[in-house]
Design a binder for these strands. Structure first.
Lengths: 201, 201, 201, 201
DNA sequence: GATGAATGAGATTTCATTCAT
DNA sequence: TATGAATGAAATCTCATTCAT
């Protein structure tokens, strides 16, 4: 066991509170809010439960901050792809590809549902705002393309959600463990193609 | 006060085990697997916890049977719409409309996720099979329409999932509680229109 | 360890819930609300913590019911002494004697203080009512004696509290462990004498 | 924003250790030993918990010193009243009045009870000694009056405790929040009158 | 068929205390 | 002098499950 009291400073390591946040986010991605115990988080971080509580006063706070942090990181990645000199179509393929490579589903509906009864209204809102921010880059890009006349859509907000929902299907495996796609390499491309057809003029 | 003696047999009342199953399904729809306790189920059924255990030896069994039952009921409804003398397009609109009226999301991904770590492999498979069966009617209809040349799709299985995923977006409300659609009456129609464009030849 | 599940019935034993209540009262008499843990109660009753919670959903409920029960028992004892064919003076001596023999202080102020921040308003009131009921017999007797002209007091309610407070001093021991009374046998008599002088006409 | 650099020495401010002691005493007056956490003390003092520990190595020490300090301060006040040129009767009224104005009960029995199981024997003794010292002035005054023949009592030590106990009743409020006294202005006078009758020759 | 009684394991949270800086 | 970081131990409470009736 670790010694009691403040440990000797180690500037090479990331600060503990950040480590906890990232680790917790990882766990909450795979298991649901209720399934991840504070003990689990502590153990995964190599600290004691009390240390987790030192930084995050309640489990709901930890959850909220972990989720918001995670979504912000994803937003950065998405926006990175959107800043490349590319057609919107190609950008969407890239994002989809990246998404499908992460493999674990970033299902915000699920996040909210499993935690909704535990979180406070403010916490729910904070996560939802982060989620909307995550996708707002895509929405802007779609709106822009619509205004330029490259595509046609009457409801860009819906279009984004549609895009996200379709991409997620790429991760689906049926009861026998088979994907819906024979050609796994081109999953992303096929999905975006399907989506894109709804936007063509 | 309860009356003395054996209660007059109430033939309208469903047998206890079925009542438990349906009630449990209702609860699992709103809360996650972990959030619904056996006590909750018992209370909602007006029986004791021991009675629930009398019929269902474990919580996972109860969950599995409740979910499978629920999905079978949904399948019947879906197939009922598919049997009407209608174009596929109209049938899809009807199904979407019904779905959006139920309001609580029948999110099988979520069901599986929140319970996956608790259920046995067999139980997971049973639920997944029921889920696939739930949508197989739509898949058949799409395949048929493709063969008749009414639409074009290379991956009917994906198309069904896409349809379901898109319909679900109709239930989405953002952080401020607003729907993505201004015209709430025609949500279902708009969604199916969007979907249909991807299937047109 | 005990076996799981319902134990074989044993009609000789007092029902578990009563045993818990009485045992808890004993503990709360010696230690404060916070110092008595639910584990302590369980251990003292030879049941598990979960059993205690089976009967009393929260610690505050257990505390409230235990205290009210205790006070009711004391009330019976007091009233028993008051029903004897005796002068009020002698009755008060008897009660004081009994009180001083119990040795542990039944200090309701203390009970309330240590628990006040934990109990609900209703719970506090319930205990206070039980406390008032405990002493109401004495108050009636004093009022009666006043009306008969045996004594004189303008504030019977205060007189009771005074009586109780004075009796409690009989239990006091100073820093060196010495009582305030040399003649331990006649403590009760001396105290009541002191009290009585304030009531004489 | 806090100003940069060393703060100008604030000679009006008491040294930290004294501030902690007084603040802690305030807290322990309202809540019990167990209910006041070191965090509470730290927060109320605007220092960190570690600072509290820098001055007081354990919670029991802090408690002991805070209580002793408090009682010493009360002793000074009592003795101040006793030094005035007044009859003992009037002095007792003044003390009672002051006591009833403070409103929070200085119930040493309660203090001891709630902490007894945590404090060391020495610590308990220290507090008890301080308590006795607190009241010794009154005891001396009563003994003196007895010797002068103004009053009669066989047990001055008991008389003091009786006096204190009776005064405390002035703070009592029943379950409906009502005081025992209609004439709130003259509470102190009525109580001392009651007490005094027991001392008259 | 249905229930009341009991439990073991584990969850969240609190808190006095320690130690390097 | 004062503090931030960390911990071990314990407290309250929950819950799936078992068993005698």
């Amino acid at each position: 066991m670790r010694q009691l009291g403040r440990p000797p400073s180690d500037s090479t390591r990331k600060p503990t509170n950040e480590r906890i946040l990232v680790t917790a986010a990882d766990l909450f991605l795979v298991k649901s809010y209720q399934e991840v115990s504070m003990d689990d988080v502590a153990e995964a971080c190599n600290v004691t439960k009390a240390t987790v509580y030192y930084y995050y006063k309640t489990k709901t706070r930890l959850y909220t901050e972990a989720m918001v942090g995670l979504m912000n990181r994803v937003r950065s990645k998405i926006n990175y792809f959107l800043e490349e000199e590319n057609s919107l179509y190609d950008q969407l393929v890239n994002i989809a590809e990246a998404y499908l490579h992460v493999a674990t589903e970033l299902d915000t509906e699920r996040f909210m549902h499993s935690a909704r009864n535990s979180l406070s209204d403010d916490q729910i809102k904070a996560i939802q705002k982060a989620e909307e921010a995550m996708y707002s880059g895509i929405e802007d890009a779609i709106r822009e393309a619509d205004e330029k006349g490259d595509i046609h859509t009457e409801n860009p907000a819906f279009a984004v959600r549609a895009y996200i929902a379709l991409v997620k299907i790429g991760l689906y495996h049926n009861a026998d463990g088979e994907s819906l796609f024979n050609d796994k390499e081109n999953k992303a491309k096929q999905i975006v193609e399907f989506f894109w057809r709804s936007l063509e003029k």
